[in-house]
Amino acid sequence: MIKDIVWIYYYASLILITFMSIYGIAVRPNLLKKIIMLSILSDTANMLAVLLGYHILSPKPPVYPGGTFSTTQFPSQEQLSTFAKYAVDPIPQVLVVTAIVIGLAVLVFLSFVAVLIYRRYGTLDMRVVSKKARHEVK
């Protein structure tokens, strides 16, 4: 019962942070705050992916059998199957590493666009920027 409540709390808090970041992207007029909220949203999605691969089975953390820099001994089949039973799912973590790099690329590009907008219009308030841009077109 306690376990159920804890897991519902995990998912509910992630969904709550998602809602809050979407609110920030939609409502806040400052472009910098929009970018911060976007990065929080992508981090929450990554967190959800990692949580999907997570489980607690062993009371102690699993350590990979073998694997130092000068090892030539490979682990036995029993050690490997024990490790595979207790370790968490690696696939969501791999996807998250990829997603973090892509998110960083998006963040870099968005920050440079924000710099450009600030140099051109002198503000990051999107209401003012859109008014000025409309004026320029006319």
Binding site: Y11, L52, I56, F74, L80, F83, K85
Partner: peptide, 24 residues
Amino acid sequence: IVPLAPTGNRPLATIFLESTFNAE
């Protein structure tokens, strides 16, 4: 849709975990 307190790995994860350093 999402698991509640999962009790084991999915089959694909088990394959990856067992075979990446399995010299046999």
